[in-house]
Computed example of a mutant assay.
Amino acid sequence: MKTTTLLSVVALLGLTASLCTVPRALAANEELEQAATHHVRTEQNKARDQYRNPVATLAFFDVTPHSSVVEISPGAGWYTEILAPLLAAHGNLYAAHFPADTTSEYGQRARANFVTKLASDPIYRKVQLTAFAPLAGVEVAPAGSADVVLTFRNLHNWYMAGGEEAMLHAFNNFYTALKPGGVLGVVEHRLPESRLDTNWTRSGYFPQSLAVKIAEQAGFVFEASSEINANPKDTADHPNGVWTLPPSLRVGDADPEIYKAIGESDRMTLKFRKPLAQ
């Protein structure tokens, strides 16, 4: 009788824990939905949700309102417009932009515009502006402070700048910033593995197998992939690479409607985790 009773109690506790997890997950998704409709989001950016799927993507990467998040190379702030409202009350957001001393005119301009954006609304007051470059020892956030590091459509840039070495520097820096058990979330234009023998390196597309290989070299464990951001219409074979497609539409004399019909690029969505045991 005592054994039966004990097993019943254990089963009940397990069921109770499961039932508690469901409301928490639903609450987090509701808050993601609310953040995606926050007033700071521009209509132009909202129009791209159909391709970038921010709510499902952030949920897949375990981002919650209580997370400490590092956004790598936030650009003009497309995801910042969602992450800042989401994390404003209980979380932290590090925006690792171009370094303040960058010699790139584009980088200087992009960082200055981002600083102006952060000053435009009180919702951004907690955003901590840091720096990123695919170099050794760059601190995108204090070591061991982040629950999640996010990078969206950046891998091809690092590869074009410095090959696998630059990418490994970047992944090592993310590993250092993350807490044990933390998540690295990667979204990138996906090169079909069947096209590895083509001249793909400056196309803007990147092979998933190489992304996984370099992340694992940095110490990450590849946990899962998702087709949230997949686009089967995209062949990854266009005259001007990924920039042929929306939103860039570098189509030359071609009919832009052809590429608008394809939509934005096919994207891999990869989830890596920093092991608990160090």
Score class of each variant (00 low, 15 high):
residue 3 T to W: 04
residue 6 L to M: 10
residue 7 L to M: 12
residue 15 L to C: 09
residue 16 T to D: 02
residue 17 A to I: 10
residue 19 L to W: 03
residue 19 L to Q: 04
residue 22 V to H: 05
residue 24 R to C: 14
residue 31 E to N: 12
residue 32 L to S: 13
residue 33 E to F: 05
residue 34 Q to M: 09
residue 34 Q to V: 09
residue 34 Q to L: 07
residue 41 R to N: 11
residue 43 E to I: 10
residue 43 E to P: 07
residue 44 Q to F: 05
residue 44 Q to S: 14
residue 46 K to L: 09
residue 49 D to W: 15
residue 53 N to D: 08
residue 53 N to R: 14
residue 53 N to G: 01
residue 54 P to R: 01
residue 57 T to F: 02
residue 59 A to C: 05
residue 62 D to S: 14
residue 63 V to I: 12
residue 66 H to I: 02
residue 67 S to P: 09
residue 67 S to R: 05
residue 72 I to E: 01
residue 76 A to M: 02
residue 77 G to A: 08
residue 82 I to G: 00
residue 83 L to P: 08
residue 86 L to Y: 04
residue 86 L to F: 05
residue 90 H to Y: 14
residue 94 Y to H: 07
residue 98 F to M: 05
residue 101 D to F: 00
residue 103 T to I: 04
residue 104 S to M: 08
residue 105 E to L: 04
residue 106 Y to D: 07
residue 106 Y to P: 02
residue 107 G to A: 00
residue 109 R to E: 14
residue 110 A to G: 08
residue 113 N to M: 10
residue 116 T to H: 06
residue 116 T to C: 00
residue 116 T to W: 01
residue 118 L to F: 02
residue 119 A to V: 00
residue 119 A to W: 00
residue 122 P to D: 01
residue 122 P to T: 00
residue 127 V to E: 07
residue 130 T to L: 01
residue 130 T to R: 02
residue 130 T to H: 02
residue 131 A to K: 07
residue 131 A to T: 13
residue 133 A to F: 01
residue 134 P to T: 09
residue 135 L to G: 05
residue 143 A to G: 08
residue 144 G to P: 01
residue 148 V to W: 01
residue 149 V to H: 13
residue 151 T to P: 03
residue 151 T to I: 05
residue 152 F to C: 03
residue 157 N to A: 13
residue 159 Y to E: 10
residue 168 L to C: 05
residue 169 H to V: 05
residue 173 N to H: 03
residue 174 F to V: 06
residue 174 F to Y: 14
residue 178 L to C: 07
residue 179 K to M: 11
residue 181 G to S: 11
residue 183 V to F: 09
residue 183 V to I: 15
residue 185 G to H: 09
residue 187 V to I: 11
residue 187 V to C: 10
residue 189 H to K: 06
residue 193 E to D: 15
residue 194 S to K: 15
residue 194 S to R: 15
residue 201 T to L: 03
residue 202 R to G: 13
residue 205 Y to F: 14
residue 207 P to I: 11
residue 211 A to N: 03
residue 213 K to M: 12
residue 218 A to V: 05
residue 219 G to D: 10
residue 219 G to P: 11
residue 219 G to I: 11
residue 221 V to E: 14
residue 222 F to L: 13
residue 222 F to A: 10
residue 225 S to H: 12
residue 226 S to Q: 10
residue 227 E to S: 15
residue 227 E to L: 13
residue 232 P to T: 03
residue 233 K to C: 11
residue 235 T to F: 03
residue 236 A to P: 10
residue 238 H to G: 11
residue 241 G to F: 00
residue 242 V to H: 01
residue 243 W to M: 03
residue 246 P to G: 12
residue 247 P to C: 08
residue 251 V to M: 02
residue 253 D to M: 00
residue 254 A to T: 04
residue 258 I to D: 11
residue 260 K to L: 13
residue 266 D to I: 04
residue 270 L to V: 11
residue 272 F to M: 04
residue 274 K to F: 13
residue 274 K to L: 12
